[in-house]
Nucleic acid binder design. Sequence first.
DNA 1: ATCCCGAGGG
DNA 2: CCCTCTGGAT
Length: 221
Amino acid sequence: MSKVKKQNVDDLRKRVKNIIEILEREYPDAKTALIHKNPFQLLIATILSAQCTDERVNMVTPVLFKQYPDAKAFAEANVSELEIIIKSTGFYRAKAKNIISCCKALVEKYSGKVPNKIEDLVKLPGVGRKTANVVLGGAFGIASGIVVDTHVKRLSERLGLSNNTNPDKIEEELMKIIPKNKWISFSDMLIWHGRKVCQARKPKCLECSINSYCPSFKNFT
DNA sequence: ATCCCGAGGG
DNA sequence: CCCTCTGGAT
């Protein structure tokens, strides 16, 4: 690694440390917005959350889990009945298909229990790194990586923490500059901040608590 | 019109 | 790398 690059990484680490300190005060109980601590329910809720708000996911999950309490029940579910229940979360056909095949795999390979290793989770149908990291962090408390969703992606770019567009590359870069004990809370804080302040369209830069650390501040004011 | 706590497939 | 899948909120 070149000297210049190492210096950049050190600067980034310092800047991230300050950003994290401010956000921790602003969002003291940053944790997953999906209300399920149970690994299985968190997994299903996270699959449902693609391109859809957590409020809407939390709207359907009570009836969903009453109807299908475990992986076995989902594995044997009727596709169109499942589709009707999750319709309001969008992408419902793909999600229903993914959830059923995911649960079939859980029943066959893991006797219905959610594995706690990222290599295993990512192999499940419909589960990518984002979903896997949410489940590992939210339900198992394991910092196996960093959740990169559209909010984390957008804020990382605006804050100058990563120049990449590929979520896997962004995760890789973030892991280098963020202390491991902040991996789980970091994404949640960015997601909260991304929804409340640093929105995609009209970011509220003037009321942003970390604007002095943001290279994009001038672009929006 | 445009965006939302994505993943699979070409 | 791109595209598609979907309803709902703003």
